[in-house]
Design a binder for these strands. Structure first.
Lengths: 112, 112
DNA sequence: TCGGTGTACCTAGAGTCTCTAGGTATCGAG
DNA sequence: CTCGATACCTAGAGACTCTAGGTACACCGA
């Protein structure tokens, strides 16, 4: 009766948000670090600009999936806003992971 | 110097368009058929509504990646618009496939 | 004959997201 | 003193997805 699509519409709408959840599921991180980390570990395959990442983090926080707190690093360095998953965020990550696997396999079947 | 991202911005922006190219790379198809085919073969993992597919096909045609032609089926059945890849479309599919693989692996590394 | 279902196309508009292109501020190196 | 790095931010344009309809015809069952 009701549709079973957990990601709301489809994947790919909040796909980048899911990626951020995935990173934060590993450890606390701050925005600038996330940008650099994605660029580095994906060798450019995922190159989200700051203008994408910061708003996405704010949306995730607004939606209660992550929580952030300011950390002073001292000695004139800019303060950082570290984010971590909330309980809702962990659930969303688990669901999103399942959706990603399903979507990935279906897309692979088409693009294989 | 220049960025090497073939899919314009990132993947996922035109990700569904790429999926359509992938399908049409196999054989000629018409919109209604594509909707049903995706739903069926992906077992619901990709469930693009008509309101997504038809405009996407028109964009791809507008951009010269696919070409469509009307086919009368006869006996009162609605006519169908069959689409096939253009040469530009085949190139875009080949590029998009590479991007997809890179993106997929990077996302798997994060979500794995 | 009337309503429902299936085929097959279409669109307007709302909502959401991504990206560009800036901006702020501080520090250290050259 | 200018440049690059660190870190954050935003406005606005543009693009896309989805909802929720609509058109038109044929067929089938009650």
């Amino acid at each position: 009766m009701i549709d079973d699509r957990a990601t709301g519409p489809q994947l790919s709408r909040g796909e980048f948000g899911l990626l951020l959840l995935g990173l934060l599921g590993r450890r606390e991180m701050y925005g600038y670090e996330i940008v650099a980390e994605l660029r580095r570990t994906s060798e450019g395959a995922i190159d989200l600009p700051e203008g994408t990442v910061y708003p996405a983090l704010r949306r995730l926080e607004r939606d209660g999936l992550i929580g952030g707190n300011w950390v002073e690093v001292g000695s004139g360095a800019p303060r950082r806003r570290y984010y971590r998953l909330t309980l809702d965020g962990e659930r969303a990550l688990a669901d999103g992971r399942k959706d990603w696997l399903r979507f990935r396999d279906a897309a692979d079947a088409v693009l294989g």
